[in-house]
Computed example of a mutant assay.
Amino acid sequence: MNPARAPQSVPARLAQIALYGVAAAAVAGLVALIVSAVLNGSLTRSGTADALGWGALILGFLSGAVAYSQSGQSRIESTMRARLGEGYRAPGLPWPQILAPLIGAGILSAIVFALN
């Protein structure tokens, strides 16, 4: 058995999702800060809070887009299979891909709250 393919325990999987959320917060926050610094010429405390707020908003929309896309895709596939007379149970939502950006958005929102 390949150790890279071994199933993960639930706490290990949750820790991995949380780590991805922290990474998403770091990347989105850094990109938002760089864009804000370039556009404004410098970073102030309120400018940093605004930039991180935009980063949190973008991560929140990303999470919603993943959920919306998956639900639309499963609806289309179930309709197509129903036309062929096949039964089809749509897969559930991809929770790790939805939760990671939400965790990142929560982290950035907490930092914005602390800055204000």
Rank of each mutant, 00 (worst) to 15 (best):
L33M: 10
P91N: 12
A26G: 12
R75F: 15
A105E: 11
A114C: 02
L30E: 13
Y88S: 12
Y20W: 13
A4M: 14
A23N: 13
S74K: 03
T44G: 04
D50K: 09
I103D: 02
I34Q: 09
V35Q: 10
Q8F: 08
G72K: 10
P7D: 10
L102Y: 06
G72S: 13
L62T: 12
T44M: 04
N40T: 13
L52C: 03
A105P: 03
G104Y: 03
I76E: 15
R89V: 15
L115S: 06
S71N: 08
S69F: 11
G106A: 02
I34S: 04
L52R: 11
L59I: 02
A105N: 01
V35W: 04
S109I: 00
A4Q: 08
L108G: 02
L62Q: 12
L108H: 00
Q8V: 03
I58F: 00
G64E: 12
L108N: 00
A6W: 03
S63V: 06
P94D: 04
A6P: 04
V38P: 12
A32D: 07
V27W: 14
L108D: 02
A32V: 04
R13T: 03
A15P: 13
R13S: 15
I111Y: 00
A23G: 09
I17A: 15
A24H: 09
R13G: 03
Q16C: 05
A67K: 12
A49E: 00
G85K: 14
V112A: 02
G53M: 08
Q8T: 01
R45P: 06
I98H: 14
G85S: 13
A56I: 07
V31P: 07
R13Q: 14
A26V: 08
V27I: 15
